[in-house]
Amino acid sequence: MMKKIVLLTLFMLVALSMVLAGCGTDESSGSEGEGAEKIKLIAAHNQTTPDTPYSVGLEKFKEVVESESDGNIEVEVHEGTIGTEESELVEKLKLGAADVVLVSPGFMTQTGIEEVDLFALPYLFDSFDHWEEVVDGEVGEEVASIVNEKSNNDFKIVGYWSAGVRHFYGKAPLEKMDDLNGMTIRTQTSGVVSDFWKQAGAVPTSVAWGELYQALQQNVVDSAENAYPYFVAQNHHTTKNGKYVTETAHDYTTRFLLVNGNDFDKYTEEQQEIIMNAAEASVVAEREALYVQEEEYKEKAIAEGAEVSEIDTAPFIEIAEPLQDQATKDMGTEDLLGKIRDLK
């Protein structure tokens, strides 16, 4: 009798193990490979205006990730809903409350990585083609390595996006650089950008982006600077002190698409490949959208009464180049500056 009980128990254990093994195979099957779990990524940027290039880029990221993983990786896109300040987004990335975020070089310097301020130097680039050649090449790779190393792998750059080319707009057009003398301008109030505008004759002033429309309308500031897709979307061109746009093209902007490198390293090789493929696709989609919107929003501004003019930028560049030299010397990035200039 005891022998029969033992044999029956062994039979039941074998049967149960086969059932459990079958269940494990079903749960781990799919494109992610054996044993991989489904994951959810929170992707975020700080813009609240709908249909921005940022939105286009992150939606493409979501599309590619979910398609290539057969839905085993889900992406939840947040557009200004979990943070309208870049500091909030980066903090969430470090703490695991976000997995993919977009930030500017100017903010990254606040984390102690001064070298990325290289990309914020006035007149560093002379065209979008030049900018792309730099960020997509050796210089971009070196900056990505610096960010990863200095952040102890908290930040991993997986793509370079653009926020457009920035121009001056204010209460009067600029016919020559001297027209800036004594004019207040909403821009960075410290660092090389501030020094540049001071040497051009202007008075850098701090105004929150969300308050700038009112500041321009009520004469709090005389002028500002930004790219068409952003200041026109906020109707700054319809204000008393935002009507006159002078195409100074002083900054072909760079934005970093970041993931947490430590979390990224925990993913399977297939998951990592899917995320990198999606990041590459998002770069293409975001830039294409941005370049189209540059023209669309310029035409919109003119149609709605803005007056657009060009200016000889040579005097501005003459101020900018010594500032570039000193800034890169201080940052230890003179070699990168040389490579960027060689690509012009």
Rank of each mutant, 00 (worst) to 15 (best):
K3V: 14
L8E: 13
F11Q: 14
C23D: 04
D26G: 05
S28I: 04
S28T: 15
G30N: 14
E37Q: 13
E37C: 06
I39F: 05
K40F: 01
L41P: 09
L41I: 14
H45T: 10
T49Q: 13
T52P: 10
V56L: 00
K60F: 02
E63S: 15
E66P: 08
E66S: 02
D70R: 04
N72R: 15
I73C: 09
T81F: 04
E91L: 05
L95P: 00
A97F: 07
V100G: 06
L102T: 11
V103K: 11
P105Y: 07
E115R: 10
D117S: 15
F119V: 13
P122Q: 11
L124N: 12
F125Y: 15
H130F: 08
H130L: 08
W131C: 06
E133I: 02
E133C: 00
V134Y: 10
D136F: 00
V139A: 12
G140R: 01
V143P: 06
V143S: 03
I146K: 10
V147I: 15
N148T: 08
D154L: 03
I157V: 15
I157K: 07
V158T: 09
G159S: 05
Y160C: 01
V165M: 07
H167E: 12
K171L: 11
P173R: 11
M177Q: 14
M177Y: 08
N181D: 13
G182D: 11
G182L: 12
M183L: 11
I185K: 02
T187K: 02
G191V: 11
V192F: 00
A200C: 14
T205Y: 08
T205R: 06
V207P: 06
E211L: 12
Y213W: 08
Q214W: 01
A215L: 05
A227M: 04
N235V: 05
T238M: 15
T238V: 08
K240I: 13
T246F: 12
H250Q: 15
R255I: 06
R255G: 02
G261A: 10
Y267V: 05
E270H: 09
E270F: 03
Q271H: 07
I274Q: 09
N277W: 03
R287D: 03
E288K: 06
A289K: 09
E295P: 02
A301L: 04
I302C: 00
A303N: 10
G305M: 01
A306S: 11
E307S: 06
E310L: 05
E310Y: 04
I311F: 03
I311H: 06
A314C: 02
T328Q: 08
M331G: 02
G332I: 03
L336A: 03
I340W: 08
